[in-house]
Design a protein around this nucleic acid. Structure first.
Lengths: 107, 107
DNA sequence: TTACAGTATCTTGCATTACTAGGTAGTGTA
DNA sequence: TACACTACCTAGTAATGCAAGATACTGTAA
């Protein structure tokens, strides 16, 4: 999959998944990769950035399948940002579809 | 509009518009900006790259509204690339929509 | 004549973000 | 002991959109 398409959209996907329920990084990589490939080296820095910008809070939780998991939880600010970004994506992707699927017109 | 969303997609839009009819750079900026803002400093380097990669050929044409216009014409290779890219976009954007609009499930 | 708006092309340097390729460490199994 | 899987992390690189500037042609208004 074209890596450029993912720019900015991965952020939106991460926000959407964490909005539904608290997630840890490795889990997000797995979940998103079911739809399209994403690298760990992409997701962890993204989570760090979104946390720094107060869209997430984090907490650690023991696991019996490996080292402790760092869970991310959406803040109020994060939810607002997510909804704004999702709305922007809707508008943008619909515009793109208009351009690329438009029938030839007499002009 | 989120600048990141456009990464890679602008290429697709330019290909789509030139596929319909030969276009010059300034025209593409105007046409795309009807849907979402795009800068000249983005489009001209993109056209240069796509031409270098043999997706476009170019020709000059006089204008009575200003300096000569450089028209871009899609090559066979360009059309193949456009259709491939458009199909990738379809798959990608549908995946994103599944992630961000999915209802909460019992899990 | 001069100035400006609109049309049309181009370039340089910057900001952002995804990926590659590595590392560390815990758990369970062969 | 070795390996696979889970789980976290980072440094450096590549790709691409944008801001801000330059150049130049046409037509119009002061």
């Amino acid at each position: 999959m074209n890596a450029q398409f993912k720019k900015g959209v991965l952020e939106l996907c991460v926000l959407a998944l964490v909005d539904k329920k608290d997630c840890y990084g490795y889990e997000l990589v797995q979940r998103i990769s079911e739809k399209f490939e994403v690298a760990e080296g992409t997701v962890y820095p993204l989570l760090r950035r979104l946390t720094k910008e107060d869209y997430f809070t984090t907490y650690l939780k023991e696991s019996n399948e490996g080292p402790p998991r760092k869970y991310y939880k959406l803040t109020y600010k994060g939810r607002t940002f997510f909804e704004e970004l999702r709305s922007q994506w809707k508008e943008f992707s619909e515009s793109v579809d208009q351009i690329i699927w438009e029938e030839n017109k007499n002009e």
